[in-house]
Design a protein around this nucleic acid. Structure first.
Lengths: 362, 362
DNA sequence: TTGTAAGCGTTATCAG
DNA sequence: CTGATAACGCTTACAA
């Protein structure tokens, strides 16, 4: 056989994609034998045959169709992931871990963004079902997540990420929010703050927020100081500013501090404080949930509760793979990570607070 | 037929997924007829039949297998997207636009992260090929991207995102980097800065960086002021600090300013400046590429060149869909967006610069 | 060690 | 209007 240049040899034919039959013909064997080669059954093939097929595959630059394989065997090696907000740094960081772990296990991730809309979430789940995903990683869009089971086959392995359902029928991977909130609260109280407020988006139907609210109330009660939970609708322009202004105008119970219940809330809090000319921590101390790349850059640095997001991503896939391995016959399992308080200037001791103005205000 | 409770009626059978045959049996028709229903051929079906099938589908909560459909028709309705860095806010913002547009067109996105490694990129492309994606959105990992064509069927529609190849064989969607860089440079010169430096990750093999370098040199030459391009390897601890220190220690040619060639470089620049105690813009003015959520929060606010990322995401999918529609028979097309300079305090006029210390330094 | 043939869940092409 | 039947590309008994 005259061998052309490598470039020519490897050119992929235009038009119909090469199939197992093309390879079989070129190698002078049957499809079945090629299939055995593809499944790596080297014990059962003669060395000569193996080599022939190997060459044919290389020459044709052949890649078996995962579609056809899936149809036959029922294994798509596809995992679906639906997040409530792709632009949330938390989601992205988790996604990275999940992606890595999927690749390691030979699975492909199909990522979707519900944008926080339960309706869109339902649509996406239906779409993923059509692709016969083998497992689902779900970061619930919000209230209404109870309908998830209806949209999916009852035996589909599901792992809930960050937010869970009351039922407890699914695996779950997330943070110990109560403990994390307790640590944050005690840190502030320990630093002399006496009038605390938790800023959160509307709690209803979102487990994370509810838990963080609970942890806050508990810790505040234990410390015997003032603590209010304030729900802020971030879609409403100026809502955050109004909430902060109201808090600052309240009766003087001692040094004031806020805890922002999510990365987005942290951002909006700092923005609003800047607009109101509130100094951090002089006028108001701040602790934020979720470590953000800019946490150390703003003002005196923002104290945050960091989550091990990459590890969470790995854990969520592992949880799914474990379930896959047992054909979904295991009890629902929760994997709970611990947050880590990263202390910076925004929560410095109340007395010692150097009254630094936010930069850029003069 | 006795009807159970809705909940019971809709329960999805465990075990084998329901197929078109189940629906056909329940509706008392043939699979072919069900298939016609699924393809929406209402003109050709009797109203009674239509209704029967409709009921059966609902009762069984049936969803046709996209896998089987793909195998038959060759249309997977799957689009692959490989990005160099999922954690880059640019990528995420584009992803959001792309995702929305895909959903609108009834396509599903399979997202992969090459992590900037050309080897991993090759692996991912091979994986996507197995799934018979109909189109590919590719944000090249870096040097070595020339091998992409080999990994993919020659007739696969490809759109390059942000970074392109010299060959120009593919569609491309990205920014007019030369113009954007020119605007940034002229802005700084206009505000009295005379000694400029462009901070970028190593240019070699990454078109965006090369173009930004080019645009910088051109603009600086046109303005007749000093301008150096400094390549910084961000993986090396302290490299950014060293580069900045060296720049500051150079001969006095007038007010100094840096342009950070990407969002990540901006972050590292500001971090290093803070570590070195450099005031912004007093000691050093800053303009950064890519608008970041925290741009307005740090110091006096960071002047940035904002990209219309969401629109870029939409454009990249549209470009692909257009190519899909013409069976890949169109000439390679480039869609170039224009950056927008968002002016903030970090590049305030050199004379008028209020010497604000980064907050938190005392 | 290898080949033959059935079947995975659809759609499309025929007939009827 | 509807029903058989043959693909689609692959895997897997079952034979040889």
């Amino acid at each position: 056989m005259s061998r052309g240049s490598p470039a020519e040899e490897y050119r992929i034919p235009v038009g119909r994609a090469t199939t197992i039959v093309d390879v079989a013909e070129r190698a002078g064997v049957s499809k079945a034998t090629v299939s055995r080669y593809l499944s790596g059954k080297s014990e059962v093939l003669s060395e000569a045959t193996w080599k022939q097929i190997e060459d044919a595959v290389a020459a044709l630059n052949y890649r078996p169709s995962q579609i056809a394989r899936s149809l036959k065997g029922g294994h798509t090696r596809l995992i679906g992931m639906v997040v409530a907000d792709v632009t949330n740094p938390y989601s992205v960081a988790v996604l990275k871990g999940a992606e890595d772990e999927c690749q390691r296990a030979g699975y492909m991730l199909a990522l979707c963004n519900s944008g926080g809309s339960p309706e869109k979430e339902q649509l996406l789940l239906a779409g993923l079902r059509a692709y016969r995903i083998e497992g689902l990683i779900l970061n619930l869009a919000g209230p209404g997540g109870e309908k998830v089971p209806e949209a999916m086959p009852a035996d589909l392995p599901v792992v809930l990420l960050d937010r869970h359902l009351p039922a407890g029928r699914f695996d779950f991977v997330g943070l110990d929010n109560i403990a994390a909130m307790g640590e944050a609260t005690r840190h502030l109280v320990g630093n002399g703050y006496r009038d605390l407020m938790l800023l959160a988006e509307p709690l209803r139907g979102v487990s994370v927020r509810i838990e963080r609210g609970l942890g806050f109330r508990e810790a505040v009660a234990a410390a015997g100081c003032s603590g209010e939970v304030c729900e802020v609708d971030l879609r409403q322009e100026g809502a955050m500013g109004a909430a902060l202004a109201r808090f600052m105008a309240g009766p003087d119970r001692g040094p004031r501090a806020v805890i922002a219940a999510s990365g987005l809330v942290t951002l909006r809090t700092v923005q609003a404080m800047q607009a109101l000319g509130l100094r951090m921590p002089g006028d108001l101390a701040v602790v934020g949930f979720d470590e953000l790349e800019w946490s150390s850059l703003v003002g005196p640095g923002i104290t945050t509760i960091a989550q091990p997001t990459y590890d969470i991503g790995i854990a969520v896939v592992r949880s799914l793979l474990a379930r896959l391995a047992t054909h979904n016959m295991t009890e629902p399992r929760s994997t709970i990570f611990t947050g880590r308080l990263v202390v910076r200037g925004s929560s410095a001791p109340a007395g010692a607070a150097r009254h630094v103005r936010p930069a850029g205000e003069g």
